Simulated assay, not measured.
Amino acid sequence: MSTGRSRIVLFDLFGVIARHQRPGALEKMAARCHTALDSFTTAYWTHRPSYDAGRHTASAYWTGVLHALSRPADADTIEELRLADIDSWSRVDERMVTYVRNLRDRTRVALLSNIPADHADAFLTAQAWLRDLDHVAFSSRIRAAKPDPAAFRHCVVALHAAPADFLFVDDREENVRAAQAVGMSGHVFDGQDGLAAAVEAWLPAR
């Protein structure tokens, strides 16, 4: 018989359990670089995939951003930007944290997040509840970022499960579609009430 403990709810972090980037953060970082917001935003996101996937260090990432903006990449500027960036992604939705922690009474719970290594270290230090989950997969540590199928397959192997055992929850539809393509169930997150209904429908009846 299928039980809730044989199933796994796999959560994205940002936009689901954690808040999206703090409003105004990119503007402040752009001002620190003495550059226009549009130019800064383009450089910031263009260089992000390799940083998220652990192929670039924080220093290499910020050096790339600053060089793209024709700005000097001195150590002090890089460290100021790095710390400001970590802070801008540091907020969590406490209501969702409570929901996720309580859900572990019924099923296994794991996390799959696109996040640079230094951000991941900061999150683990600040959010001790992450250590209580059944598995935490950070893209920079597993060297694969969503929607790369390798990121989802990592979770399958790490949890000694089958893709069909997973319900993947993310606020980005492209990531949910990628999870479904490897055989997982998926839910596009648009709020806790809709999520709770989807989880109840997916888990075996109590």
Rank of each mutant, 00 (worst) to 15 (best):
D121W: 12
V97Y: 06
R101I: 03
A84Q: 13
L66N: 00
T77K: 09
D118Q: 04
M96P: 03
A128E: 08
D87P: 01
A128C: 02
L124M: 08
D105T: 13
D87H: 02
R108M: 05
P116E: 07
H67D: 14
E79Q: 14
D87F: 00
H67V: 11
V109Y: 08
R71P: 08
R91K: 06
R101M: 04
D74K: 11
S113N: 09
L66C: 02
S88H: 08
M96I: 11
T77F: 05
R108P: 00
A84K: 03
I86L: 10
N102M: 10
W89F: 06
D93E: 14
R95H: 05
F123K: 13
A68N: 09
T107W: 01
F123V: 15
D74L: 09
D93W: 10
A84I: 10
E80C: 15
A126V: 06
H67Q: 14
P116V: 10
S70E: 15
F123P: 10
P116Y: 01
R101H: 03
R82C: 01
H119C: 01
L69D: 04
T107F: 03
D85K: 00
I78N: 03
I115M: 08
V92R: 14
S70M: 08
M96R: 12
I115A: 07
V92N: 14
D93S: 14
L81I: 00
N102I: 12
L112K: 07
I78Q: 03
F123R: 14
P72F: 10
R106V: 00
R104T: 02
E94L: 13
E80L: 15
D74H: 07
A128S: 05
E80K: 14
D118I: 08
V92A: 15
S90C: 11
V97E: 13
W89G: 00
A122E: 06
M96H: 07
N102A: 13
D93G: 14
R101G: 01
V92F: 15
A128F: 05
T98C: 11
V92G: 13
E79K: 13
D93P: 04
R95W: 08
D105N: 10
P116N: 05
A84F: 03
R101C: 12
D85I: 05
L66F: 00
T77L: 14
L69R: 08
T125E: 09
N114E: 02
S70P: 01
L83S: 14
A110E: 02
Q127C: 06
S70L: 09
A84D: 11
A84V: 06
D121Y: 13
R106I: 07
I115G: 00
R82T: 06
I115Q: 10
I115H: 02
T107R: 02
L124G: 08
L66W: 07
E80F: 12
F123D: 13
T107K: 04
I86H: 04
D121R: 15
L124T: 08
L112Y: 04
L103T: 08
D121K: 15
R104Y: 04
V92I: 15
A126P: 05
S113V: 07
P72L: 03
V100A: 03
H119K: 07
A128R: 09
A120K: 00
L69C: 06
D76K: 05
Y99R: 07
A110V: 03
A122Q: 00
F123I: 15
R71G: 04
A68W: 10
P72C: 06
T77C: 07
E79W: 12
A84L: 09
L103C: 08
D74Q: 09
R95S: 10
R82D: 08
W89A: 01
